[in-house]
């Protein structure tokens, strides 16, 4: 069977991705209004791209995406270094993977909130006297609550994405390095890391792009201003018909950020991954 077997799927996905984005762009320039006659205009672009809230939203979105991905990758690397073939920990990490992001956001509120379970434990241990002594970690302007929720959800994903590659390398190559006198640390950074980081970069890229585009967690754990781009777009879309083109422009900015992240990841893999191709 040739590739033509994928025609129905290609048609559906093409209609969704290209047709969906195309129709949204047409609506944003006034060529396909929901009601009334078409009138080409760039008003929505001018309004959104000159707004201060867009810059704040982009900065917040990028900050949340980069910080949460960075922390998640760091934690995942440490876990992978420690557990190796230990199947019990891998099985345990499947549990948070099945927990929906909305529930992760709810848990963050209840555990890291000012009167949450973490604060109650701190009070029981004598660390704080009153809930107002607890730092604000949810619904804060920096986005720590959102970052916590994403780290909790994405560490298991990155571990389970990267660990099979790491384990495979450990079996085949690390023993050779150890025979030649390398320490465990040296064998890890000299052998495992150079060979496995491309797959870690792909996993990190997927996580980063997902964080930029996801709505539920910032919707629950964010603040009104600054709001992440996904929440801004969602709120504008659910507002009046006049605001819908603006929602599309915000969503286009989101897509641009995702494409930049993707391009960086692919460029890094292409530039350095070639040296280790074929292992």
């Amino acid at each position: 069977m040739k590739w033509q077997g994928s025609s129905p799927l290609l048609l559906l996905m093409g209609a969704y991705v290209c047709g969906g984005i195309g129709m949204a762009v047409l609506e944003s320039v006034g060529a396909a209004p929901l009601i009334g006659t078409p009138r080409w205009t760039l008003d929505a672009y001018v309004h959104v791209l000159t707004a201060e809230w867009l810059v704040d939203g982009m900065w917040l979105t990028m900050r949340i995406a980069l910080v949460s991905t960075g922390i998640a990758v760091g934690c995942a690397v440490m876990i992978c270094m420690c557990i190796g073939h230990f199947a019990l920990t891998r099985t345990l990490l499947l549990i948070p993977l099945a927990v929906p992001h909305l529930v992760a956001a709810l848990l963050t509120v209840w555990i890291a909130g000012q009167s949450g379970w973490g604060a109650r434990m701190a009070h029981a241990l004598g660390i704080v006297d009153h809930w107002s002594d607890v730092p604000i970690l949810t619904n804060d302007t920096f986005g720590w609550g959102i970052i916590f929720a994403y780290v909790w959800k994405e560490v298991p994903f990155i571990v389970l994405f990267w660990l099979p590659i790491v384990v495979r390398i450990r079996e085949e190559w690390v023993r050779v390095a150890r025979v030649h006198g390398a320490s465990a640390w040296r064998a890890w950074w000299g052998v495992v890391w150079p060979l496995s980081w491309p797959s870690l970069a792909i996993g990190s890229g997927i996580v980063c792009v997902f964080v930029i585009g996801a709505i539920e967690v910032p919707y629950v754990l964010g603040v009104t201003h600054p709001a992440s781009l996904s929440v801004l777009s969602f709120e504008l879309y659910r507002g009046t018909l006049v605001e819908r083109p603006q929602a599309i422009v915000v969503a286009l900015c989101q897509m641009l950020m995702c494409l930049v992240v993707l391009a960086i990841v692919l460029f890094c893999i292409w530039r350095r991954g070639q040296r280790h191709a074929g292992w």
């Binding site: 994928s6 969704y16 047709g19 969906g20 949204a24 792009v209 879309y237 929602a247 599309i248 995702c258």
Partner: peptide, 26 residues
């Protein structure tokens, strides 16, 4: 094959809300 896979995997890298808005019109 590369083209088909690129289109099929696009939902992983495109924020879901943008195609959703356009598809809603259809």
């Amino acid at each position: 094959r590369t083209i088909v896979l690129a289109v099929c995997y696009a939902p992983l890298v495109v924020p879901p809300f943008l195609p959703l808005i356009g598809t809603h019109r259809w």
